[in-house]
Design a protein around this nucleic acid. Structure first.
Lengths: 240, 240
DNA sequence: CGACCCCTTGAGGCTTCTCAAAATCCGTGG
DNA sequence: CCACGGATTTTGAGAAGCCTCAAGGGGTCG
């Protein structure tokens, strides 16, 4: 279980202009003038593994953009059952929705750096930077498509199909980010994979073992998955 | 199983200005001039129950807005397993995502009327009507939040919890639309409820029966659910 | 070296699915 | 108005997949 550490325990936000220049995807392609406008409002936040950025029900005061690292976005039930809705990485947004409260919790998986915008500043930014809205809309549409895929996975796929789909998805995401996609890196624990796929850690572990015995994957380390037979994995991701 | 009827078998699209004036939510609050701009590009489409508007993989040539009726948005697997990602009603959008192909199928549950925008016209509209993008962003954010709720339901809730959550959600949606929210109307079959909740029709039916025997709900007709004990239903929606 | 955490493996139980059949609803036509 | 046929819903019995509970490795860090 993740520790819940108040945000102020994280390294204090500080003025930041490098994040816009480096890897804030939203800024890629913006004019220099627009980038400057954004940088003026930006602060950085650093989180250690297991630290919460915000929790379900917290007042939604800020919008965040991940500079580096990886996070999970989750919802919980009163009895402790948890479901991770998605994993986020560099360039992804948190808290864009215009609500009074966050509807999900956000937790760091690895050391993570974020850009933080106070909501009013972010709203002003939307006015000033004309193409920002278009970008956010495209991002949101992608999120919807990813969520629909996840809904199919959770509603209709078997444990093995979920694991196979997950590995392929993770590989595709790494490739899209320009990182080596084989072996696949899993910056999350088995518990987090399970909470993402709607399974228990035991079932996740058993599926990995079965895939290894079938020689479809290799497991050089618990957080490293060597894909040996992509086609077989693809078949397993939708075979009944 | 829904019949697959090519779109051209539906009533032919025809010029439409009434739909913008009446219930096209996107237009509510727009200036008269902006509404006129939109109407110029709009055609209407009418679908009968079971008719497909488009299927997964179809070329995404149009954007739609539902004027009246209800539809389902679904994804399928090669072996026929189907998962409904959501139900849509008056005011909801279809096909906003800027992709070459639709990633889901859209099917009418009841007789449905839609406004249809050719994609290029819709893109122009985004330029011309300044507040449209903001609206679409808000809509997309709501879709993401709804999808996350659905992900929690599919990943972690029991059959009974899913049914209870579904009934409460359906009641809330009807209330939001200004329709009577008790009894709840279910414009979809048990098969569609099952495909939405990741269950079989038998399990859906058994849960309804159990709720009826507990006197939590009444079933005056298969498509009508009288909620007798809201609090009990709320408890059941997250009790293990 | 030992404690802790995470991962793996095993045995048994429970929820849900599958397969099958009966009951109900609904539109059609006599 | 009633009888009929098809589709939908309900109910039942048995099977299967995943979860729960429990114990045993393996790695890391103090």
């Amino acid at each position: 279980m993740a520790q819940i550490i108040p945000l102020h325990r994280a390294s204090a936000p500080s003025p930041c202009d490098s994040c816009t220049a480096r890897s804030l995807t939203i800024c890629a392609g913006l004019s220099a003038a627009d980038q400057t406008k954004m940088a003026a409002h930006v602060a950085t936040v650093t989180l250690q593994p297991g630290q919460m950025l915000f929790s379900e029900g917290d007042s939604a005061d800020h919008v965040y953009n991940i500079t580096s690292g990886s996070m999970s976005v989750a919802k919980s039930m009163p009895d402790g059952r948890r479901q991770i809705a998605g994993f986020l990485g560099a360039g992804d947004f948190l808290g864009v929705s215009t609500r009074a409260e966050y509807k999900v919790s956000a937790e760091a998986l690895t050391e993570t750096h974020l850009c933080r915008f106070p909501r009013p500043a972010f709203a002003r930014l939307l006015e000033e930077v004309s193409c920002l809205e278009r970008r956010l809309l495209a991002v949101a549409e992608n999120e919807v498509a990813a969520a629909q895929e996840q809904i199919l996975l959770l509603g209709r796929k078997t444990a093995m199909e979920r694991i196979a789909s997950f590995l392929l998805l993770q590989a595709a995401r790494m490739k899209a980010r320009g990182v080596t996609d084989n072996p696949v890196l899993l910056p999350m624990t088995r518990a987090e994979v399970g909470d993402y796929l709607g399974l228990t850690i035991e079932t996740v572990s058993r599926c990995f073992t079965r895939l290894r015995k079938l020689d479809v994957i290799g497991l050089p380390a618990p957080d490293r998955v060597q894909i040996r037979q992509v086609e077989q994995l693809r078949t397993l991701s939708e075979a009944a």
